[in-house]
């Protein structure tokens, strides 16, 4: 059989080397690997937390390219292998889901700012839009019975948020390439925002002058704002955001009491200045 006729096998986890970037959050205990990779919201593969791990086996994260264009001086298409060959950093971050559960994840990746600086945003660029892949044949959740979200999944950041040193593109976790269920081969991680801001399996990054539409905000604008900064003071209409359930804590049934949710998910010192003067209740 000519090799070109065979689709590449789903990528197996490959070890990734990363140096400690100095940006990791000190003193956190990582959530067990099993939970990080088997308790996921990735609606492209289904609505249950277990669906992404169970139903992403047929997804092909290679070959893969990420197009970076829009209001930039030098639009570029990056190959995933070239991105993986960059100097990578490990970033141990808190992850707070809008559903009021949380994890601590040792990501591997590089600052999004690196990429953005290479393409040179024009002065008119104010926002960065992210687009995830659409592949109904490999992503069973994209052809469900009920309308869930419009595909592709889209997300966005203000340019200053995107350039912030805490904002990374992750290509791995726990010392290996990103598993399919976690957004292989490349995803956005913005640790001070609710998890849904972290677009998975990103194929396009576009700089714009107006605020890009974002998937959950389109679905329910009163429940999911554009900013989606973790904020214990601003509740979801259906539940409080004051506390969170840590996932995968030993003795989870009686032992894992809720813990208080921190403003900006504990990253206020680094990022609060981005929102100086803003009403975070209105711009939630």
């Amino acid at each position: 059989v000519p090799p070109g006729l065979l689709r590449p096998a789903p990528a197996r986890a490959a070890p990734l080397t990363a140096r400690s970037g100095g940006q990791s959050t000190e003193g956190l205990t990582p959530t067990p690997f099993q939970d990080v990779t088997h308790y996921n919201n990735f609606y492209e593969f289904g609505l249950e937390k277990t669906d992404p791990a169970e139903r992403s086996g047929g997804f092909h994260p290679r070959p893969w390219t990420v197009r970076v264009d829009g209001l930039v001086a030098h639009p570029r298409t990056y190959d995933i292998d070239a991105l993986l060959a960059r100097p990578l950093q490990e970033r141990l971050y808190r992850m707070r889901c809008v559903e009021a559960w949380s994890m601590v994840i040792p990501w591997i990746g590089f600052p999004l700012a690196e990429l953005l600086k290479e393409v040179e945003p024009l002065g008119s660029a104010k926002y960065v839009a992210f687009e995830s892949v659409v592949r109904p044949s490999e992503m069973p959740g994209q052809s469900g019975v009920l309308p869930v979200l419009d595909w592709p999944y889209v997300e966005g950041l203000r340019l200053d948020e995107a350039l912030h040193p805490l904002t990374i593109l992750a290509v791995g976790l726990y010392g290996q390439t990103l598993p399919n269920q976690n957004g292989a081969p490349i995803r956005l991680v913005v640790p001070w925002k609710y998890g849904f801001k972290g677009a998975k399996s990103v194929v396009r990054i576009r700089l714009t002058d107006s605020r890009p539409p974002t998937s959950w905000n389109l679905r329910a604008p009163d429940e999911y704002g554009f900013y989606a900064n973790v904020n214990p003071e601003v509740d979801h209409p259906r539940w409080s955001q004051a506390t969170e359930r840590p996932i995968g804590v030993r003795g989870g049934f009686f032992g894992a009491a809720r813990k208080p949710t921190l403003p900006f998910n504990g990253y206020g010192e680094q990022v609060a200045a981005l929102y100086a003067g803003m009403n975070l209740r209105r711009d939630f």
Binding site: D35, H38, Y39, K49, T50, W101, R245, I247, G248, G251, G252, F253, F254, A256
Partner: peptide
Amino acid sequence: MGVANRLGADPVNVF
């Protein structure tokens, strides 16, 4: 199952 920690990653929610 909850006491035996066999309700998955988010046992209280499942219960």
